[in-house]
């Protein structure tokens, strides 16, 4: 499937989902759906660096909160429409990602992971001590009741839902395009054997910085509409550990090597969490995520996609890769297996 076909199909799917959600005429669907979609963006963004390059980012919450707090800042200074805020958030979070990456990506992978953990705490301390954006008391962001687009009137939550679903489509299209491009193969070489890649002339630092910036920017964009969604933003919730855990758990459970993995993982885990939060309690739902994460990394290292893919191959499918790439893909899989077993 060509990229633009995929793009059209996913926009169509998004439109159908949106229309169906409107037909249900229940605001809860939009509130719950927004959260799930937000995690589609976050886990896809995490996967660009974590799944494709093999560098673990524990700082999802930091990038997400950067996006959210840049919205709060502009809400207080000079209110801007959400699409503009998305771009601002992308720039801010992308630059922070680039900076962190530049400082730590030249070292071993573990240092990057630790630095991202550190980043979340440093930024949280800065926000707690910054009174303009609410400090530790938090900030109220009143959302308008509804919004007038050219032809249709939407309630604000429907508007946010529509933005988030478009953002999710954009994230998936970006991830899928990367996967099939030269960039994606560069990322895969880093993941499989960075030393060999460097020796073969792959500009690993440059590629890693591209991945970190892109991934950070997408996470920031996911955070930008959040203050309008939640209405009241305080540091502890914006920097909450659930963001970091979910954005790691969802791709790990779904499968990290393709764009489908994070999507499957998020839809499963996100929906499960929405149900568990309502029926049991939010602490139990987090425990569930933690246990699933540990269980999957031990038992099914390639996630659900890894469990399903061999069966599909046997049935003659080449999904989710196009047949053109199948030969080279299986060759690279074989070579990566051989480098790992040593």
């Amino acid at each position: 499937m060509r990229s633009w076909t995929f793009c059209l199909i996913s926009v169509a799917v998004a439109a159908i989902v949106f229309v169906l959600a409107r037909l249900l005429d229940n605001d809860y669907v939009f509130f719950a759906g927004y959260t799930v979609l937000q995690f589609v963006v976050l886990s896809t963004a995490w996967n660009i660096l974590g799944g494709y390059c093999g560098y673990v980012n524990f700082g999802t919450a930091a990038f997400f909160a950067l996006g959210a707090y840049s919205t709060v800042f502009f809400h207080k200074t000079y209110p801007l429409p959400i699409p503009v805020l998305l771009i601002i958030a992308a720039v801010v979070s992308g630059l922070v990602g680039l900076g962190t990456g530049y400082l730590t990506l030249r070292l071993r992978g573990a240092f990057f992971a630790i630095a991202t953990l550190a980043l979340a705490v440093v930024l949280q301390t800065l926000v707690v001590n910054w009174n303009y954006v609410g400090g530790s008391r938090g900030a109220y962001v009143i959302r308008p009741a509804e919004v007038d687009l050219l032809i249709l009137k939407l309630s604000y939550i429907q508007y946010l839902f529509a933005i988030m679903i478009l953002l999710a489509v954009a994230a998936l299209v970006i991830a899928r395009t990367i996967e099939r491009s030269k960039l994606g193969y560069g990322f895969a070489t880093i993941r499989d054997d960075e030393l060999a890649a460097e020796a073969s002339g792959v500009p690993t630092l440059k590629l890693k910085l591209i991945a970190t910036t892109l991934s950070g920017a997408l996470m920031g964009m996911a955070g930008a509409p959040f203050p309008y969604y939640i209405g009241y933003l305080e540091p502890a919730s914006a920097f909450g550990l659930p963001y970091a855990v979910n954005s790691i758990a969802m791709p790990m459970i779904g499968g990290t090597t393709t764009w489908v993995g994070p999507l499957i993982g998020t839809l499963l885990l996100g929906t499960l969490q929405q149900i568990a939060t309502v029926t049991i309690s939010s602490a139990v739902n987090l425990l569930l995520v933690g246990i699933l994460l540990v269980a999957f990394v031990i038992i099914a290292p390639n996630g659900i996609v890894g469990l399903v893919q061999p069966h599909l191959r046997n049935m003659g499918w080449s999904w989710p890769r196009s047949s053109k790439l199948k030969a080279s893909e299986s060759a690279s899989a074989a070579s990566s297996r051989s480098t790992r077993s040593t």
Binding site: V56, V245, M252, G290, I291, V294, V297
Partner: peptide, 22 residues
């Protein structure tokens, strides 16, 4: 299996999280 870089880290992160929530 030579997978400590990505999955090993996720494993310990999961352990940290499980201990805290428990």
């Amino acid at each position: 299996r030579g997978q400590e870089a990505l999955r090993g880290l996720a494993f310990f992160f999961g352990l940290l999280f499980i201990t805290e929530v428990m």
